[in-house]
């Protein structure tokens, strides 16, 4: 059984143009599913629908085997939502933000202190979160989204504003939760995050899923199968490209490697960003 499934999901704000134009996806238990697209492509709208913040969608969406629109408050016992922006009570401490939130859940919850510690936030800190850096605030939001031990975890740019060590720690935490069976729905426009974390990704462009699959599979499908080398020629460097799909070029490459004045050698496998550009005709920054 899939944890989350959408068939023909569509949505428009009021009488405006459709933002989502028939999305189909299916996400299994413990899977990390990346939802990638530039700003305005419909990522956040999709996440809001899945978190039941927006109603009136078209198509069918089911979570935990039940139609989403018919689910009650118990749905929120089973999901966690980490927003893109730090939406905290700015005048309260991090501990208070978590403890007050925790009181709304009936099911088992994790301790606020344990989560704060795990996310490298100070324990017993009475300062209001307004005095925290953006990275610290985002980690509080991340901790808050885990309080009720969600089975389905929505993450919107989870490493936004984090320094490299904390970004690594957050990625490890996400992998750990997925390994324990939590399904992760990750929206991002950071291809590096998606590539390092996601089991599968979907490219969203203009309200449609343009491509879907494992990052490595998508990259392979769009690879040209060539190797680029730089050779010393006189005082300068010459760049040559060899196809791995033709015997004569493979032999020429082998010859260069054996005897040529080789300086560098690189595969030309595309990045996920390149694949996105090839599939959608747009870059993730929208250009």
């Amino acid at each position: 059984m899939s944890t989350l499934e959408a068939r023909g999901l569509s949505f428009a704000y009021g009488q405006g143009a459709a933002v989502l134009k028939g999305l189909d996806f299916r996400i299994g238990e413990g899977e990390i599913y990346g939802f990638l697209g530039p700003n305005g492509s419909g990522k956040t709208t999709t996440q809001k629908i899945l978190a039941r913040l927006l109603h009136g969608y078209g198509g069918r969406v089911s979570a935990f085997g039940a139609e989403l629109s018919r689910m009650g408050a118990d749905y929120y016992e089973r999901i966690g939502v980490c927003f893109e922006l730090p939406n905290l009570y700015e005048r309260l401490s991090a501990g208070e933000n978590l403890e007050f939130y925790r009181a709304f859940f009936d099911g088992g919850t994790d301790s606020a202190d344990g989560l704060l510690e795990r996310l490298d936030l100070p324990l017993g800190d009475r300062r209001p979160v307004s005095q925290y850096s953006k990275g610290m605030k985002m980690r509080v939001v991340l901790a808050r989204s885990l309080l009720n031990r969600p089975r389905l975890w929505f993450l919107d740019e989870p490493t936004s504003g984090q320094d490299p060590p904390h970004a690594v720690a957050i990625r490890e935490l996400i992998r750990e939760k997925a390994a324990a069976g939590t399904t992760v729905f990750l929206t991002t426009h950071d291809m590096a995050v998606a590539e390092s974390l996601c089991d599968r990704v979907a490219f969203l462009a203009e309200g449609r899923i343009a491509a879907e699959g494992a990052p490595a599979t998508l990259r392979r499908a769009h690879a040209r199968g060539t190797v680029r080398v730089q050779l010393r020629e006189g005082d300068g460097l010459a760049t040559r490209e060899y196809s791995l799909q033709h015997d004569d070029q493979r032999e020429a490459l082998a010859q260069v490697v054996r005897s040529g004045p080789l300086e560098t050698i690189h595969s030309t496998e595309p990045s996920l960003e390149d694949v996105f550009l090839a599939v959608t005709g747009r870059r993730l920054d929208g250009s």
Binding site: L53, Y76, I79, V81, F83, L85, L88, F105, D106
Partner: peptide, 14 residues
């Protein structure tokens, strides 16, 4: 402004 109203909407709080 803080977005806490939306944060509460993803809890079981009616």
């Amino acid at each position: 402004n803080e977005g806490t109203d939306v944060a509460l909407q993803v809890t079981p709080l009616p």
